[in-house]
Amino acid sequence: MTAGGPAAGPASTGDFAVRVAGVTKRYGNHVAVDGVSFEVPTGVIYGVLGPNGAGKSTTLRMINDIIAPDAGEIRLLGGLRPGREAAAHVGFLPEERGLYPKMRVSEMIAFMGELRGLPARDARTRTGAWLERLGLGQWARNKVQDLSKGMQQKVQFAATMIHEPELVILDEPWSGLDPINADVLRDVVREQKAAGRTILFSTHLMEQAEQICDHICIIARGKKVLDGRLADVKRAAADEGRVALGFVDAAARARAEADGGPLADRALVAARHAGRGGLDAATDVEVELAAGADGGRLLAALVAAGAGLRRFEIVTPTLHQIFVDKVGVENASVAARADGAPEGGRP
């Protein structure tokens, strides 16, 4: 690869952007990250999802060599060690946001660029472009402390991206952003991907992740729960065979569920779940297909029984549902309660 000018875009960096292999981090008796492995392919948007305290921030910190893993190995961009070797190729937005309050906005951003190895002149030119892109042009000469929290966050994004890193790592990038700025950030992330960069971010906001991720990795209690392409994860979840049914009235539903009815047939239906995903509790039901059964056979049986069907849908679960299913209700509710609180995990 070559160093590449700012216009050349990221250089080709091998077959993976991040490889985390069997990484463990302990704090005293507490295992913050427990043998986690995953691989981020080059040029994708990769989301690390999990409830607060799951070990997301600790993992991202290790990828940035802020802390060292107790076991396991991390390689970046096809083989670089985290830290000094990779510093010029990586941009990091930490969960703990912080800027020098007395610095001018433009100088703050240029400073971060220079710190990542950018020559002073390049840093200044790019700072101007980034401030315009984020709608902060008129604030360039103000001190950081004069800006609102949301604007400071945008300054921090610019400081993260200024050296145009091949790998952009964002820890909870949407926390504290209003909806408009959240959209701006999402656009920026997509632009970065279009430019061939890899974006790795953590979040506990499943809606954001679902809209933007190519790949996900779900972590809970320091362990990896699942990872893969978002589409594959969703298809796998869909193939688990959930079908949402709507009947014309409660009586029709009762007939179908009664002994001898198609929904009572253990060869077809393994379990029934009432009222999920905003279904009408009186007339609608979601069922789990039995092993070996498929949607077509269930539909045929229902039609044959003259069940009075209004709706028949193979359910593709939302990421939120997959998350709740995989992580478990107790963990997910911990996540919901702890929403917005900073992630723990350090002594």
């Binding site: 690869m1 083989g79 190729h89 390049d122």
Partner: peptide
Amino acid sequence: MSPPAPRARRGAP
């Protein structure tokens, strides 16, 4: 594929 060489620092240390 071999890992990329660390990018030489072009700016100040």
